[in-house]
Design a binder for these strands. Structure first.
Length: 499
RNA sequence: GGCCCCAUCGUCUAGUGGUUUAGGACGCCGGGUUCUCAGUCCGGUAACACGGGUUCGAAUCCCGUUGGGGUCACCA
């Protein structure tokens, strides 16, 4: 006999089907389950719903688990795979058949489709009317003998109202006659279908709370019926509102980036993603909106979940990601930036044949570059990045031989060629003679800039010559990071370009 | 179409009958800092879908209308 303690244990599950990579919606469902388990000292079970053998792929299963881990979601049990539990389902199918709660159906697909169309035309809800229910035992056996294709259907009790208390939506009622008739629970090879395995597994795994997307609301009465038939207790249900695309429809593959891995690759931080998607449909109240996973684990409650779908707005995600990037320590940020620089062939990792602090090589110049230098480059853009991937575009000039694609970039307001050259030459003189100390460098450059009628006349050409960009970090920072030698070289190249 | 669910600024939301001239955040606009772009600081724009009730009082409760979403497979 189970004691109360055991009955009260919170057990939730995340049950993805491995037919695609983990996407934003699935990630949020997983997150809510995880948070709920943590908040209530419960367990999270990972269950792979791979009953569709055609569409299920191992690579997707791997992707899902990888993405969950990346997000910081860990599970306490599993992964269980439904493909490995077929004997359990078979047992129940046979039991139901024996008790005549399920039956064989030999109707052809085309036949059924025609029937559904007719029902639709008559403006009736499409449902299976139970044609094969009346087949005699002999007839049934004869057809099986003949090798006729069949499926197994569940005998749905008529005139019954299935009611459940949704933890988010409140009381939800379904009329048994509205759930589509005697639905199919297994194919002819006895391989079971979703609603059936889901109900069995939630029971077998003693799931206390089923937290899943709203699209499953209408499956709930079917699963409750099955649970009743096998004498299982129904778990609590909570259907969370959907994440919508810009078109206000369920977020789907059609929407730009939906796979979590895409976001990871673009340089979103997992903390930013979990924070952001959690707040899409959940809010603990008040005006705060930056929460760590740990904090959310303490605060999460189904009561604070929104009933309405939320549009996925990338702008705010970007903002939030920028916030998290700014909060990172520089070494960690640099480590995250390096793969993007390598991938863009701006730098390469040196084979560690020799001892030494130089770990990287600049592809274009062949120059060595150590981690410290890289992090000083990254530091200039920590406040400017929204996504890590931006580093390769925003800071590429640090890894190039010639940054000046066009001399046009050098001009500032109405300055003449002579004026520009003059500014660049002044810059060269300051850099050549100044004591190599960042504060002194900045001081001297500003002093020089202040002799102009506007500082831009001095600073813009220099910064442009140094970076080849309209937008960048300040010339002081750039010179300091670039170093005296490279800075002078670039300024001279700019003068040459003007002449 | 049947069934189910829902409805506060463009978006995410706070708000659970009076403390609200409806608060915050993103976005957008303007300004300060500034050679540029960011960042940062300051300010502004903008919403209770509509109509009936209930009540001394409704964004908050009830009903209806409209609108939106979900779902109706031998997918999950």
């Amino acid at each position: 006999m189970k004691n109360n303690q055991e009955n009260k244990e919170v057990r939730v599950r995340f049950a993805p089907s491995p037919t695609g990579s983990l996407h934003i919606g699935g990630a949020r469902t997983a997150l809510f389950n995880y948070l709920y388990a943590r908040r209530n000292n419960g367990k999270l079970i990972l269950r792979i719903e791979d009953t569709d053998k055609e569409r299920s792929k191992k690579e997707y299963e791997d992707n899902i688990m990888r993405s969950l881990s990346w997000l910081g979601i860990s599970w306490d049990e599993g992964p269980y795979r439904q493909s490995e539990r077929e004997s359990i389902y078979k047992e129940y199918i046979e039991k139901l058949l024996k008790e005549e709660k399920a039956y064989y159906c030999f109707c052809k697909k085309e036949e059924l489709e025609r029937m559904r169309e007719e029902q639709r035309d008559r403006k009736e809800p499409p449902r299976y009317e139970g044609k094969c229910l009346s087949l005699s035992k002999e007839e049934r056996e004869r057809r099986i003998e003949e090798g006729k294709e069949f499926v197994l259907r569940l005998k749905i009790p008529k005139n019954e109202v299935i009611e459940f208390n949704d933890e988010i939506k409140g009381r939800v009622k379904f009329d048994a006659k509205d759930i589509g008739g005697d639905f199919v629970i297994a194919r002819s090879d006895f391989s079971p279908l979703y609603n059936f395995v889901c109900a069995i597994d939630d029971f077998k795994m003693q799931i206390s709370h089923v937290i899943r997307g709203e699209e499953h609301t209408s499956n709930t009465p079917r699963q409750i019926i099955i649970q009743k038939m096998i004498g299982a207790k129904t778990p609590h249900y909570a259907h969370i509102s959907l994440i919508l695309g810009r078109d206000k429809k369920k977020l789907s593959k059609r929407d730009a980036a939906v796979s979590l891995e895409d976001y990871k690759n673009e340089g979103y931080l997992s903390q930013a993603i979990s924070n952001f998607i959690a707040l899409l449909g959940w809010h603990p109240g008040g005006e705060r909106e930056i929460y760590s996973l740990k904090e959310m684990e303490q605060l999460f409650s189904l009561k604070d979940c929104q009933k309405v779908g939320a549009i996925f707005d990338t702008k705010k995600l970007e903002y939030m990601n920028g916030q998290y990037i700014r909060k990172m320590n520089l070494d960690d940020l640099t480590k995250k930036c390096i793969p993007y620089l390598i991938n863009d062939n701006l730098i390469s990792q040196k084979k560690d044949e020799k001892e030494g602090s130089t770990d990287y090589k600049v592809s274009e110049t062949g120059e060595d570059m150590d981690f410290e230098k890289l992090s000083s480059i990254v530091s200039l853009y920590q406040e400017r990045m929204k996504k890590i991937s931006e580093i390769k575009d925003i800071a590429d000039d640090f890894f190039k031989e010639n940054v000046l694609e066009s001399k046009d970039i050098l001009s500032w307001k109405d300055m003449s060629k002579e004026n520009l050259i003059e500014s660049l030459e002044k810059g060269i003189r300051v850099i050549e003679s100044v004591e190599w100390e960042k504060s002194v460098l900045e001081e001297e450059l500003i002093k020089e800039a202040n002799t102009q009628k506007d500082r831009g006349r001095f600073l813009w050409p220099i910064r442009a010559a140094l970076t080849g960009k309209k937008a960048s970090a300040s010339p002081f920072d750039v010179i300091w990071v670039l170093g005296r030698k490279t800075s002078l070289k670039r300024l001279r190249m700019a003068i040459n370009a003007l002449n």
